[in-house]
Nucleic acid binder design. Sequence first.
RNA 1: GCUCGAGUGGUGGAAUUGGUAGACACGUUGGACUUAAAAUCCAAUGGACAUUAGUCCGUAUGGGUUCAAGUCCCAUCUCGAGUACCA
Length: 998
Amino acid sequence: MQYNFNEIEAKWQKYWAENQTFKAENNSDKEKFYVLDMFPYPSGAGLHVGHPLGYIASDIYARYKRHKGFNVLHPQGYDSFGLPAEQYAIQTGQHPAITTATNVKRYREQLDKIGFSFDWSREVRTSDPKYYKWTQWIFIQLFNSWYNKGTDKAEDIETLITVFEKDGNATINAVCDDAIAAFSAVDWNSFSDKRKQEILLQYRLTYLAETEVNWCPALGTVLANDEIVNGVSERGGHSVIRKKMTQWSMRISAYAQRLLDGLEKIDWPQPLKDSQTNWIGRSQGASAVFNVNGHDEIIDVFTTRPDTIFGVSFMTLAPEHDLVLQITTPEQKEEVEAYIEATAKRSERDRMADVKTISGAFTGAYAEHPFSKEPIPIWIGDYVLAGYGTGAVMSVPCGDQRDYDFAKHFGIAIPNVFEGVDISEEAHADKDKTIIANSDFLNGLPYKKAMKLAIYELEKLGQGEGKINYRLRDAVFSRQRYWGEPFPVYYVDGMPQMIAPEHLPIALPEVEKYLPTETGEPPLGNATVWAWDTVANKVVANSQLNNTTVWPLELNTMPGWAGSSQYFNRYMDPTNEDEIFSKEAMNYWQDVDLYIGGSEHATGHLLYSRFWQKFMFDKGLVPKDEFAKKLINQGMITGTSAFLSKVFLDNDKVEEILVKNPSNYSKEVKDDLVVLVGEVKSVYLSKGICEGRNTNSRILKFINSKTSFSSDILNLISFNIQKSHVNVRFVNSSDELEFKSLKVDLETKREYKDAEFITEEDGTFKVFREVEKMSKSKYNVVSPDEICEEYGADSLRLYEMFLGPLEQSKPWNTAGITGTHGFLKKLWRLYFDDNGAKFTDTEPTKDNLKTLHKTIKKVEEDIANFSFNTSVSTFMICVNELSAQKCTSKSVLESLAILVSPYAPHIAEELWSQLGNKESISTAPFPAFDASHLVESSKEYPVSFNGKMRFKLELPLDMSKEDIEAAVMSHEKTQQQLQGRTPKKVIVVLGKIVNIVG
RNA sequence: GCUCGAGUGGUGGAAUUGGUAGACACGUUGGACUUAAAAUCCAAUGGACAUUAGUCCGUAUGGGUUCAAGUCCCAUCUCGAGUACCA
């Protein structure tokens, strides 16, 4: 019986689908286990072998947990809103929904071929109105909430209104917009409805605000900070500028501290936690208020070093700071305005790239030092960022390098407030072990004490307080795109109103064009049926707009991360139309036990999801305030590109002879050169030829063998070699080019029909190889379909795991798959030979059991450590050993099938059924490890001399240290090694090693 | 610049708490089977010298701790990821 993997895999994939083998129930006596993958964006290119890596790992884990008796939830879906489908729509007019559906279908086919144990009955798609209904619903919940710092959680907006009606806003301790004017209860009750709404908007967890945003003109949309890489858009690499726009924002800053604290209770990779910590950027210090001489205005600054407050010799404001124009003196006006204009012109990117140039301008105004009451000059400088802190700093040149450089550049004084520290060359930023000097009441104090005292004194003056500042900004939530979730929002007199949840979903309207309108409105501005009828409660034609009952709807859509911030919860109850999920489903599944996905989502999806989860926790919707207990980042699989080296004539020389100075050369030379150019056009060299010594003469010899040239031309001309990609599918496991299949490469559209190949001595042609990112343009993409076709899904699954540690990035090389494929064939031959089944009811031998239980132990340890690569080699060792032992014991082979089943489920199912089982192997109990089979009576001790192993000696394990020493010392090889010397010391580690020193 | 991670054969990578470096594969070489190829099986495979036994050198580099270091400590170099004037 042959291992016919194509037939076997098709058979079991069909069986699983028909029997809904992996459908998870929302209630069960079994313990739950939730294994989640980051759902894919279905791109037009389909999957390559790098994509399924994480899915294979999570599938192994999910299948293993089923064997261990858990009720496993292992869903999959699609993050199907996104820019590529929209851009394709702009180019072709094709509706993004159609493109998306086509891509989803293709993804599903590819995923099915790999044999994942997904519960497809729970599939979600973020672009499905049935799904985004609940994304809209959460948006409404956020709108109807505010963050109470007193209780440290989100609360219903009604509770805020109640307080306003009773006490005004004086007692409210909320996370809200800066600088909300104080009002009393009387004030509040006398405010117009519109005024009340405006005020409430400043407290809501999602709010409209005029914000400075990252505007990408090429994409016609706003981008979040994490969508910008190196100053250009992540998608497409277009430039980004700062622009003020009215946008929806999410008050994620309210959760900054809780997002930080939460990291401690989740088992996520440290680098990922670190990048979230950096992103949130907590810094502890103080705010200090400086009065401005001759003005009512004050300058509020944040500092992490209040202990150095006596070292302040100037203040610096960001050029964009509101106060700048008010305080600038008439004499300085011209200079300041010129400077502001100059900085405004510089793009964010320029400012970032150019850190070294120091620039600024003096405003002519002075602030008053809170303690010394000395006047302090106020400057503006672009090293102070408007977006961080208050946009103003108290500059302490002796303690901060940037302040120091600024002071040096403009000749400002640099007072030293540190005891015994030299600041003639650079600032002294070190805080530990530093004693404060020249600082009045802070003199002689170490950093920590000085800091406390300075804050205390500031508070006493009413000019400051201890403060914690976060880098984390509120997240802009509006996008000027078509292919995203519409907001459930309409506008009455310019004020946003939520549509009642019972009328959701608000479906995307049809538009003729997917581009922004001519007046610069987002694509939804093109929709003709996009107005809200507050009587009929439905979307109606724009022509019915009457500003009494029919109002305009929001034209922006939500960003890509909206749909992905709650999908993991929706999987628990994905078809529920009445609630986002039922209480029962949520109480049963609780949270994700294992989440596998890429680290590129560290400060995007994974931060926003944690934020929404905490909000939903505050609202009592979910029982856990962290959605995923354990997270693993799978590494990237890179491609191994192949290169041909092509021969070129030295272009300058050719030009010289034929174009520039043809008269200098004979007709013969010119004629020969023309022929030569034609001959060389498609000559390729094998790797060995390029690396050999006489490459040039080899080429000459080859060319001359075809047409003879005069020695004149051959002396004149020289050859260059250039490497160009060749499709990896034409290269075999020995890096040799396969001429047979290489005629016309359809992907590179390059013809090799007339090409000449200069081969190695043995007639083979070797290519160059290099590891690069897997990408279409590098012709190194390998699709899982071809692999499944040729070697089978089980071989693919094993090979992807066998490549190396899950979290590490590693190169793909199709050649190696013969290893795991060969293993599966060998496994098969353990059960069957040409005559059929080999297994019998014979009792397993001691060796059989030892091999089996060794394997069980190792595999369970490996799965617990997510070390899937080593368990594949353990299987190989196991099969090698059992083959050598000629094991035919049915009980051993049955256990082996279950062990392998999470990794190679198709072959395992087939073996299981051939062994006579009627049910799927998927819930068969995992073999129990029995240590008694591994008990050894003796150990082959390595005997080392000065740490170098020389020989091995088999000794009983229960032998005492003294007896071992005696046995080793009396051994002839020991005497041979010592050559008469007496050892200084003999170290015996029981069960491990013997080391003889001397 | 800062933060984090990593450097082991021709290649991917193994190596609990410091305890036989290179498991398991790929590739390469030789052999068996075959008219031939594929498939399969067997053997060798870190380097150098010796080719029988053996000896020396080897985990990026230089030091250190230890009976014993890929593993721990210090310094240096290289690569990768994240972040960037954060007051």
